Simulated assay, not measured.
Amino acid sequence: MSTAVNVRIEALAPEFVDRVGMLAEALGLPLAGEAEFALQLGAGGLQLQELGPEAAGPVRVDFLEGAVAHRRQHGGGNGQMIAKAVGIQSGVRPVVLDATAGLGRDAFLLAQLGCRVTLIERHPLIGALLADGLGRALVDPEVAPIIERMDLRLGNAIELIREWSAEPPQVIYLDPMFPHRDKTSLVKKEMRVFRPLVGSDDDAAQLLQAALELATHRVVVKRPRKAPSVDGQPPGYVLEGKSSRYDIYPKKALKAR
């Protein structure tokens, strides 16, 4: 669940002042004052910056450069473990609901591989970063077709799933917040920013149950490799990697259309 931290919003250049004012009103953030984090808008888009003498670098959503671009160009396609977990195979591109979207990287990968993906993010600041990244990527001619397969919804995933009125997704993908033990500086930086903001997903068991009731074909839960299953509920089967695994709760087989 989210935790209470002080966040202000600021423009990194004068031409962004008006947009920052609108964002401040929409997100309920102050434009000045003491804060632990700053939501900043500049030429590179929206970013979340930890403040203080030992602050980590900014966190932003970028589908055009960096790790996401490298994964898009060299990621291994349908052979990647997440692709196998959600059921991608020859002639099968399931409709996926990513109910814990975060920075949108897994959703982007699935969309790149041809799935239509609905993303849900409940924390307003993370949602703002995600919306900004999607918007910037949409103007890139190479990446825009991928972004067009992604639909962002903001709100509590449990409530949105329980109130779902559209056609149910075939697959629901969950990646509840857990303490990452990866030693990369990128992960450390993001967890250092995310953890105070969003806390831990203490309602992961309720989310899993809601997902199992809505998904037509399977629910997939990403977990640390040695962590217990969510709420002690054993999956039908598991795909295991070096540091993480995918718990798969099958309901019925995915078939080519």
Rank of each mutant, 00 (worst) to 15 (best):
R162Q: 12
L134T: 00
G133V: 10
E36I: 03
M81R: 14
S165H: 15
V220R: 09
I248A: 06
G232P: 06
P234S: 09
T216Y: 03
L197M: 15
A4R: 13
V238D: 01
L119T: 04
G236K: 07
Q49N: 06
D132K: 13
I9V: 11
E167Y: 09
I158H: 01
I248H: 13
A128H: 02
I146Q: 10
E148D: 05
F108R: 08
E65W: 08
V230N: 10
V5G: 07
E34I: 03
R245L: 06
C115W: 15
G44Y: 00
S2K: 09
V7A: 02
G79F: 05
L39F: 10
D18G: 07
P53W: 01
V139M: 06
E25A: 09
G155K: 04
I147K: 03
L154E: 15
G135K: 08
A211D: 03
P124D: 09
G102H: 04
V5D: 05
A24P: 00
G76C: 02
V68P: 08
R162M: 02
P250W: 04
L129V: 06
R195T: 04
R192L: 14
A55T: 13
G66K: 14
A144I: 04
S2Y: 09
L208V: 09
I248G: 03
D182H: 10
A101F: 04
F194P: 13
S229K: 03
L134S: 02
L29A: 02
D201F: 07
I147E: 00
G28K: 00
G91S: 00
V7R: 01
G52A: 14
F63N: 12
L160Q: 12
K84F: 12
V219F: 07
E163M: 10
A227Y: 15
T184V: 09
